[in-house]
Amino acid sequence: MARIFAVLGSLRGDRLLVEAPEKGITRHRFPARRDERFDAPGEGIKFHIRDLSLFYGKRKVLENITIDIPERRITAVIGPSGCGKSSFLRCLNRMNDLVEGCRVEGEVLLDGEEIYGRDGDVTSLRRRVGMVFQKPNPFPKTVYENVAFGPRVLGIKDRGVLDGIVENSLRRAALWEEVKDKLREPALALSGGQQQRLCIARVLAVEPEVILLDEPCSALDPVATQRIEDLLAELKEKYTIVIVTHNMQQAARVSDYTAFFLIEKQGDPGRLVEFGETGALFTAPADERTERYITGRFG
C-alpha cells in the first residue's frame, strides 16, 4: 500500500512540474554547462561514473563501473550478450528506474551533478539525456506528431515554433528530404531505417546534450545502418553520444572511445574490462580478454 501511495505521489509531483513550464525548450534544473564549453569540443567530461553497481532485486548486474564519458565524442560500449552494456546505458538516463526492484550504488555525475541525488529530477534529466532504442519505436501517430511530441510535452503550442522545430530536427536527423511531403502520414508507414532516424529526430527535438543509442542498427539493413553511422558522425559535433553495439566493426568505425564490458562466468555481474581510445583498444588492447573478444575467440 505504501508503494501505491508513493507512486500516486510521484504522479502528482510530475504533474505539478508540468504545470509550471518555463519558456523555451532547453530548461534545466541542472546547470547547463554545454554552452560554456562550446568552443572547446571534447575537452570536457560529460559523465563521471564512479563505482557504479546495479542490482535487479538481489541479482547484481553491474559491478564497480568507473568510467569517464568524454563530451562531444562517440563512446561505444561493446561486449558479449548479457554483459550488462544495455543496463549500463539505462543507468545514464535512469530508465532502469522503471524496472521494479532496481537499485543503483555509486556515483553518476552529469556535468558534475549527481543524477541519482535526492532531488534529482528524472524528467529534466531525461530531456538532457535522450535515448534511441534497439527497435525503432515511433508512436502510432503522424511523422510530424512524432517529432512534435517532446516539444508539446514541454508546453510549446505555437504552430510556427513547432513547425520550425520539426523541420530542424528532421534535417539534423538527415530525414527531411525523404519525409517533407509525408509529414501527415503515419510514422509506421516509413521504412525501418527511416523510422529509426525519425526516433533520432524525435530525441533531437527536445535539444538534449547526450544521446544514448541502444544497438540502434541491430534491426536495420546495411544501407540503413550506413546512414545512421554517417548521421552519428555529424551529430557528435554538438552532442555527446554513447552507443551500445554488439557489432565490433561498427564500434571501430564510428566511435572515438570504446568500453569493453564482460561477465566472467554465468551469474557474475558485468564488469568494465577496458576503456580507451577506440584505435588503441582495437589495435593494441591492454587486457588479454579484450584481445580475445575483438579477435573473435569468444563472446
Partner: peptide
C-alpha cells in the same frame, strides 16, 4: 511498452505518457 518507454525517455512524466501516448493508442 516501447511506446511508453519512448515517451518516458524523452522526459515526459507518467501522466503525460498516459494522456498523450497510451490512452490515444
Amino acid at each position: 511498452s516501447t511506446y511508453a518507454q519512448a515517451s518516458l525517455a524523452m522526459g515526459a512524466t507518467r501522466w503525460q505518457t498516459i494522456r498523450r501516448v497510451q490512452l490515444p493508442a
